[in-house]
Write a protein that binds this DNA or RNA. Sequence first.
RNA 1: GGGAGCUUAGCUCAGCUGGGAGAGCAUCUGCCUUACAAGCAGGAGGUCAUAGGUUCGAUCCCUAUAGCUCCCACCA
Length: 872
Amino acid sequence: MPKELEKQYNPHGAEDRIYKMWNDGGYFTPSGKKGEPYTIVIPPPNVTGQLHMGHALDDTLQDILIRFKRMNGYDALWVPGTDHAGIATQIKVEENLRKEEQLTRYDLGREKFLERVWDWKNKYGDRIISQLKKLGCSCDWTRERFTMDEGCSEAVKEVFVNLYEKGLIYRGHRIANWCPNCKTALSDAEVDNPEQNGFYWHIKYFVKDSDEYVVVATTRPETLFGDTAVAVNPEDERYKHLVGKCVVVPFVNREIPIITDDYADMEKGTGCVKITPAHDPNDFLVGQRHDLEQINVMNDDATLNEIAGKFCGMDRYEARKQLVSELEEMGVLVKVEPTVHNVGECYRCGTTVEPLISDQWFVKMEPLAKPAIDVVRDGTIKFIPENQSKKYFNWMENIHDWCISRQLWWGHRIPAYYCDTCGKMVVSKTDVDVCPDCGAPMRQDEDVLDTWFSSALWPFSTLGWPNDTEDLKKYYPTSTLVTGYDIITFWVSRMIFSGLEHTGKAPFDTVLIHGLVRDELGRKMSKSLGNGVDPLEVIDKYGADALRFTLVTGNSPGNDMRYSDKKVEASRAFANKIWNAARFVLLNLDEDTKAEIPEKLELEDKWILSLYNEAVKGITENLDNFELGVASKKLYDFIWDYFCDWYIELVKPRLFEKGTDSNKRAQSVLAYVLSNTLKLLHPFMPFISEEIWQTLDLEKEPIIVAEWPKYCDCLNFEAEEKAMDKIIEAIRAIRNRRAEMNVPPSKKAKLIIVTNASDVYNASTSVFFEKLASASEVVFADGCDDDKSVSIGTDSAKFFIPMSDIVDTEKERARLTKEKETAEKEIERLEKKLGNPEFVAKAPEKVIAGEKEKLEKYTAQLKNIEEMIANL
RNA sequence: GGGAGCUUAGCUCAGCUGGGAGAGCAUCUGCCUUACAAGCAGGAGGUCAUAGGUUCGAUCCCUAUAGCUCCCACCA
């Protein structure tokens, strides 16, 4: 029994109700029995806070793919989960602690602090999950994971130990980026390098026991306490006589040698460079080559230490200021030169990082990078759009060893154990309490692993690895990874080499890359700008379907997009349009109407079925090729322009005439096209499509598991499609002409059709002109006797509307003449083109046929117009 | 310094591996036509950044230039 729908679609209530129905019905969990597997693992959102627009885009794309594949009979699995996000979360919790209780993590101690972080995780992790549900994500919640849950932790230990045993993880006393605020080492990838205004301070270093001096320049004068050499280029004639001598570092009065190293660039500055191995990555390498002492002058909070003498305890910037002024007083400050340089900043807290030497763990990258490059090179893994792979190659081919230890508390503790008695170190999956060598107690490494270390394992750790589980066997390798271009290096690259190294397989076959969602002005959405748009608020206001459709339409792979409410409004209007189309259909459907194609079809039925068929083909191909935006646009056009604006209008006369066979058949076609179109719509707008589907009540199963429509040659009605197009063209031309003359639609008038195309214009198609072109009646004739009539000429017919009261013959003549000229110009162009022997010889047949057809059309139209002018 | 992307209607953007460019919004005109005013019908609005090249034919391919955005590396 057809039910009635509200006049406007109201997503509230409906969305939660439908989501619950899907969830309770177990539709998100793959049956595991039939169908090829199709797997996506979600890029796990950080538990730091809440979903933003970027997540909404990312997850919408994934949900579209999952729903599409599910409807196509795949055993579709979408694994959800969240990321512990080491630094980010720890900072959040610490901030919170400071604000709420004026406590630091040290006040609480490691164990108590971690309890707080877990509380935070539980609270915000749940919030994120509920947000994903609001968006309509059809994740399999029975398989929800967390990067620090038991299974993922097991995987992390397994990987760490494996890599260590293979010699691919090592511990080194090396220079690394240090965040003095977070008090941890950072990988290169975790350091931003924005431009900043700064200075070069040129400082004199006197040669020992001499009046001679060299001038070195530095942007960080406070590091001079750690200088252990001055380097010049071996080719530099200016300083040859000084090599081997010593200069004296101001303040500390340390004597340091002048050495030669290629690192010193003769072109830069004075050609002399001070070497501070403990505070600069390049200097560190120079220091290694020359066996220089590494003098650390800083504490872990970037205050200077006792090496700095009276500057001890001062913050680096304060010390710098005072140092500079004292250097000036001493007369050794030669020059202060303003400059713009890139300064490393912690990507989480923005504090300027300090290169410091410490004990850190590293992954040896070179052997891992090679196979990872190969699988993308040979197409085992495909990036979409393809040019995004360049970013990947660029990074992989210039890879540095990966610093994986972090001096944080929140994260996977490094499974290394030390014996303070005999110095033994053990790396082990299981806890080691007692030294195997001397029996003394062992302590575990205090540090935790970089967050990305566990994220890198996500595609297989979530499926049960290192255990050989059923899930792993069935769903790994996964199929598609959907993510933004901003984390290709952070994450995608690391998943690829990890997958290859630990499972022997590439973790996915396709990487679908999208861009950023920016604000209306094209700025990155950020907390500091306060320009972020909360997806939940948008969903609340416009509905999840509208947001989803906005994000997918008009967005192409790899490109950024701007968010604006206007766009969502347009999507909501689309949802409402579908809603009302369905409402209309329901109002006109009999109880027993079935959504099937009747044997006998009218012209307009064949027309819409043919267009529907093409839509199925196009949309399916687009989705198969990850052209989601193009697919959604096609669907939009089909639904709005063809189904609503034309087909529904065309069948109204039949629908309003109850009790006839024609009426019944119109109902069937309407129901057929609508219900199948809803299926096409479902991946994009899951809620409204389900809501209408349930109301239509055609099948028992919900639309989420309905079968995706198939293209069929049997619905290919080329001739009828063309005939109907001619009628539509004629109706448009008539409306057009009436509008030009300001004739209101309510003013009906007789329409005389002069034509040979009786297959197109006949008694059964006349009704279209009456309904849609304001014809009071349609008369077929050989010509029009009334000289005061509006004339319209298409290629298939001449139309006359006698309207003596408003027709000005001369104006008609002018108008027709203009149309004639347009047609002539087109004909001239086409004749020229077709007259070009090279074009005819080289262009593909299809193109030539198309041009010929156009020529015929314009020729026929010209003939009609000319005859009408002659008859005026 | 190396690399990538972008430049199409007033605005935001599509354009499916070269055959006379589209949408939404905005704007203008006319409509409360019994699904929808979140709507209907119609109009106006583009040397597809610039200059060359390839081609029968270029918004699309190549080269150069300009402007914008981003990534990587790095300078004392």
